[in-house]
Amino acid sequence: MIIQKDKLFALLEKLKSGGKRIIAPTKRENILLFSEIGSTDEIIQDYINTRLSLKGFFLPRSEPILEFRIHQKNVEYTTVLEENIKPTVVFGVRPCDAGSLPIMDKVYTWDYIDEYWVKRRESTIIIAVSCLDCDEACFCTSLGLDPGSTKGSDILLTPVGNDTFLVEIASDKGKKLVEDNAELFAEGDADKDSILAPVRQKLGKKFDLSSIQPWLQENFFHKFWEQNTLYCIGCGVCTFVCPTCHCFDIVDEGTVSGGKRMKLWDACQFRTFTIHASGHNPRARQDERHRQRIEHKFNYYPKKFGDTLCVGCGRCVRYCPVDLSILRILTMISQLSQTGSQTSRAEEK
């Protein structure tokens, strides 16, 4: 199945006038970001990827979870949870970002269900677009993903030239959307593999993923961490731009008469993240905090949830102010695991 670009934009306009919120890559103050569009004219089509991932639409940077009023010894409170989330369509999602969503679903539905995440997920349709180009920070293929992967998408579109997209239905939600708008789609096929071949080749395979977790399990005390990550300045940018970083804080804001309890993005790279009330800090040094980020993504999360907590979108590589590239760290680990160098706990402590 295929769809022409004008039909696709007509589809988005139709969904919009049907009451859906349409989110797409746009330029906002000259920064490429996902944002709600007023018209399809605002959609940017020539891009590698947005500065921020779409995580913020499911896990907002800050959101109230409770509101309270205090009157002397009495407290009244109400839970804040949007019951009727506006049905949303996100268009132009890259396969890496789409792939991050089912990975994140696991932590938010593990035992206790986080309704904030789940409700927004349920009311959102993801229309992803395959990548025909990448930059040197991208490394999805090294993680078993692909510039044409359907993971996490409802519909995947692959540009096949002449303002035409190949359409792949990747979920029931996607199927329904196509069925409901069948008149806009047309019969047709294209050779996706040959279209994606150049970008796949450019991406290549930058390290051996299967070597990373075993090395991490063995080398918690390796001098590698101090040598290669101590210069991290702990700004947290890597975690905020990341589609799979999901740590948050819970903080009260207000006055003596009332206020709100907020859920806010937080970052394991901050010194105060783990500090105890006594002043003792389990991760007192920046290299220890940086090791946590890598261990969490490539060792703990896979162990617990079966997925690597990284999709190779390359954002943290692009935006780190001191060029501490996770891609370089992973490549080095992959190389080290071949040479077999390690430092034992006994030597270090």
Partner: peptide, 20 residues
Amino acid sequence: ENRMKCGLGKCGRCNVGDFY
């Protein structure tokens, strides 16, 4: 006694290695 926020395995604060 690791510092906690959610207490529910979501906020990513309390882990010691892979032990939440």
